[in-house]
């Protein structure tokens, strides 16, 4: 029966999901669950698997969920419809704000409001970093890795691209020779 779900319907349902998700991946889960299981598109018990895989693949988690769920419904076409649907509302909103904001950026009230907002944005980047560090930095060498990449990027102007590529290579090699091969 999944073959009968029309693409425009997939697009619209995911557009609705995208419009009501503020804050990204995890905020999306309850809305996805409500919309998809109500329609009988994807059973509740499959959702944890979809979320786990979307989380471990690179990229934006919400996009990965849409690709995966759309694929379940109509294959590659379904994933394209779902992804375009889920990003369209925020795309239009951001575009409208971007056009509007360039005209108002120099307004003294806007400037003063953003003067207050900017330091708070940095706090909002630091908090998830601290929370992540407490979850994943369990051994001393985890801290060395975290501190090393911070110093390399922030102080030595190394591109994060090189950090990610080299840690991927090292992690892969170490895991392979320590756990998979012996």
């Amino acid at each position: 029966m999944n073959q009968q779900v029309p693409l425009w319907k997939i697009f619209l349902v995911f557009a609705k999901i995208g419009a009501f998700t503020i804050g990204g991946g995890y905020a999306m889960i309850p809305i996805i669950q409500a919309e998809l299981s109500r329609r009988g598109w994807i059973p509740d018990e499959d959702l944890p698997d979809i979320v786990a895989l979307s989380q471990s693949a690179p990229g934006v988690m919400a996009v990965n969920i849409s690709i995966f769920a759309g694929h379940r419904l109509r294959g590659v076409k379904g994933s394209i419809a779902a992804t375009l649907g889920s990003i369209t509302p925020s795309f239009l909103i951001i575009l409208a704000i971007a056009m509007f904001f360039t005209a108002f950026r120099d307004n003294p009230f806007v400037e003063r409001a953003f003067q207050g907002i900017r330091p708070v944005v940095i706090a909002l980047i630091l908090v998830p970093m601290v929370n992540m560090a407490r979850k994943c930095c369990l051994r001393w060498w985890h801290w060395v890795l975290a501190g090393g990449s911070l110093v390399a990027v922030a102080l030595l102007n190394v591109s994060p691209v090189y950090i990610i590529l080299s840690v991927l290579a090292i992690g892969f090699a170490v895991t392979y020779f320590k756990e998979v091969r012996p």
Binding site: I125, L126, P128, M129, M132, A133, C136, C137, H142, W143, L145, A146, G147, G148, S149, L150, V151, A152, V153, A154, P160, I163, I164, V167
Partner: peptide
């Protein structure tokens, strides 16, 4: 852990 460092940076 490296990603934690990148966010800090």
């Amino acid at each position: 852990p490296a990603v934690v460092g990148l966010i800090g940076a």
